[in-house]
Amino acid sequence: MALKRKVVRINTPAGHPGFMGPEHIARSVIGGNYAQSDPFIVLMDDRLDKKDTTPVGGPHPHAGFETVSLLLEGEMGDEAYRLKSGDFQMMTAGSGVVHTETIDKIARMRLLQLWVNLPKKDRWVTPRVQDLPLEHVPTLQQNDVEIKLYSGTLAGLTSPVENYVPIIIADIRIAAHVTTTLQLPANFNTLLYVLQGSAKVGQEESLLQVDRVGWLDLSTQDELSELQITAGEAGTRFVLYAGKPTGESMISHGPFIGDSADDINRLYYNYRQGRLKHIETLPCSQRILL
């Protein structure tokens, strides 16, 4: 009999003014205890309601990990490729890259951006970007359940996105009072972040409401487990993140992840010296439209 998963932690991320000014509300969905969230470092829910054309954002570097962006509303991106609502991007910063996120018009936007740790053996790989537009996202619609799968394998779907760390990312909608069961690897660290409505989740039917995060128990067994979910009276929509822990330590400082303080110092030096190339200069083989 498959292991039945249950919710072991629930929290409600608070909103704070973000770096783009008072019209930017940022919620830290993951952050602060990497030992519990491995392989996930940070997950931010950024909501912007920009009412003027003053540019905000700009170019900035990353290295040593992957940024994983799911755009829920609005538009964003660079000259080479613009994300629209429902689009997905995985940027492997690896050895180091600079990218630009500038918004210079009146706009509403909501972005979920995740930082995923890279295994030490892959920490300094050549940077690459994988873009998965909404119209190419593997989708299942069955029995009042809709699953859009952006990464990994779930419910008979497989995403074309390639991973250094095995992760599942899915945007899931369930109609009112409908119950469904998901099969997930028992040894994947898993959370649900509720975007709309509510749901009773797991073996003990823990109640997750909008803007709440529920973390599941984690097993060391390399087998499939079952997660039962029953939508509330208004139905539910949530994003599921599940990833296999690396079990490796890391150091985080600003926009960089490394294995030691020396790594961080080297990355800052290289950035100041202009040695990190902009994402737009990547060869076509490293800029992949799926």
Rank of each mutant, 00 (worst) to 15 (best):
P17R: 15
E280N: 11
R266Q: 14
W115L: 11
L207Y: 02
I174V: 15
V145I: 09
Q221G: 06
L118S: 04
N189H: 06
Y268H: 11
V97C: 06
G18A: 14
L218A: 01
Q142M: 05
R9V: 08
A26R: 15
L267F: 15
G58N: 15
V97M: 11
E135V: 03
G58F: 11
N117Q: 09
L83S: 08
S159H: 00
K200P: 00
G156M: 02
E205W: 06
L218N: 05
P127C: 08
A35K: 14
G94V: 02
V129Q: 05
A63C: 12
H136Q: 13
H99S: 12
S95Y: 09
L71S: 11
Q228C: 14
K105P: 00
S206E: 11
D49L: 07
D46N: 15
A2K: 12
M250D: 00
G31A: 06
F256C: 02
I25M: 11
V137S: 03
T158S: 07
F238C: 05
E162D: 06
L191G: 03
V213C: 10
V210M: 11
L154C: 00
L282H: 09
Y34G: 01
E73A: 13
E248W: 05
A2L: 09
G258T: 05
T181C: 02
V42G: 11
L140A: 00
L191F: 14
H60G: 15
D263K: 05
V68M: 09
Q142I: 10
D45I: 13
K50H: 08
P138T: 03
Q141D: 10
